[in-house]
């Protein structure tokens, strides 16, 4: 498991987190390449299902990154997103999965360093947790599909 490189999906809101990620890039601040961003207009758009499906499809970790609390471009989309992430965490707990595989983060558009730091911390956390428990199944499935 030492060489485990997790695949991480980050749902980032257009106005803050996505911009922060761009900012990290433009400042050449490095962070793990494991994080793949899917852009959404507001974290309020992120449905629990999106997070679950990402895990189902093989993500080792998923996080939702929105504006700072109180600063949501759409008033309260980020707080709603936080509740949904907590809901998924509870669901995972029930399933016997590590709830830490999903997380909510908040940052402003200018927080490029913070974006990079959280990406790093989250990646490290997922590395500790190990691969998505169903990942081997996916690989099997793919192999099956090939053969």
């Amino acid at each position: 498991m030492e060489n485990f490189e997790p695949e991480i999906v980050a749902f980032c809101c257009h106005y803050c987190a996505y911009t922060a990620a761009d900012m990290a890039g433009s400042k050449r601040i490095s962070y793990p390449s494991n994080v793949k961003i899917i852009r959404i207009p507001c974290t309020g758009k992120v449905d629990a299902i999106h997070i679950m499906k990402a895990l189902e499809k093989g993500a080792d970790g998923v996080y939702v990154a929105g504006c700072l609390e109180g600063d949501c471009h759409f008033k309260n989309g980020n707080t709603r997103a936080r509740h949904r992430v907590e809901y998924v965490q509870k669901y995972l707990e029930e399933l016997g999965w590590e709830p830490e595989r999903v997380a909510m983060m908040n940052m402003s558009a200018g927080m490029g360093e913070f974006f990079a730091r959280t990406a790093l911390e989250f990646t490290q956390k997922i590395k500790q947790l190990g691969p998505n428990p169903i990942k081997h199944m996916n690989i099997n499935k793919n192999q099956k599909a090939v053969s």
Binding site: P41, C42, G44, K45, V46, D47, F74, G77
Partner: peptide
């Protein structure tokens, strides 16, 4: 509509 998508998610 402002396009935040909260309704779509809920």
């Amino acid at each position: 509509c402002q396009g935040c998508g909260v309704c779509a998610a809920d």
